[in-house]
């Protein structure tokens, strides 16, 4: 089943998929080019049945000056979790929003925006969700945000 998904994605997007593999039973990882993530997401939802969004995560690779954005989508029929991922440069963190693909990604993307400063183009409401409304400074989940030291005895 997982191999079928890999083959279908490869056949439809031969030039846009950078890396694709089956991590284990029920886990498929798909790494795509930044400007094609919307189309691959739409294909996953409509053609392969990955209809249930599970999470949107940002990962800060500060050494490579990159962010990775990972969309985890679950297929209720196939019982497979697909990780759709792309890398974006740290100095220009902009990505097309996938809210049109998975409506449930609304709050996930909003959280990723406030925690990493990744701007999702086309998102209807990019405002602070969890942080206090007078928050200033670098987004807290970036690696260059250092937590204050705990008091030492």
């Amino acid at each position: 089943m997982e191999d079928r998904v890999v083959e279908d994605v490869k056949a439809s997007f031969p030039d846009d998929v950078l890396e694709i593999d089956v991590q284990r039973r029920g886990r498929v990882s798909i790494s795509v080019k930044r400007d094609r993530i919307y189309d691959v997401g739409l294909f996953l939802r409509d053609k392969l049945g990955f209809d249930h969004i599970a999470s949107v995560s940002g990962v800060d690779y500060i050494d490579k000056k990159e962010f990775e954005v990972v969309y985890h989508a679950w297929s209720i029929d196939k019982k497979i979790l697909a990780a759709l991922r792309t890398r974006i440069p740290r100095d220009n963190p902009v990505l097309k929003s996938l809210v049109d693909v998975w409506e449930g990604a609304l709050y996930h993307e909003r959280e990723t925006w406030e925690m990493f400063g990744i701007k999702f183009e086309g998102h209807p409401n990019l405002s602070l969700l969890l942080l206090p409304e007078d928050w200033e400074g670098i987004p807290p989940l970036r690696k260059d945000f250092i937590l204050p030291k705990r008091p030492q005895e």
Binding site: D51, H52, A54, I76, K79, W102, E103, G104, A105
Partner: peptide
Amino acid sequence: VKLGIVGPNLRASGVKADVRKD
């Protein structure tokens, strides 16, 4: 499903999805 609802709330809508089974 579209909104990504989970757990008993999703099952109350008639979608059979439970990690313990799936």
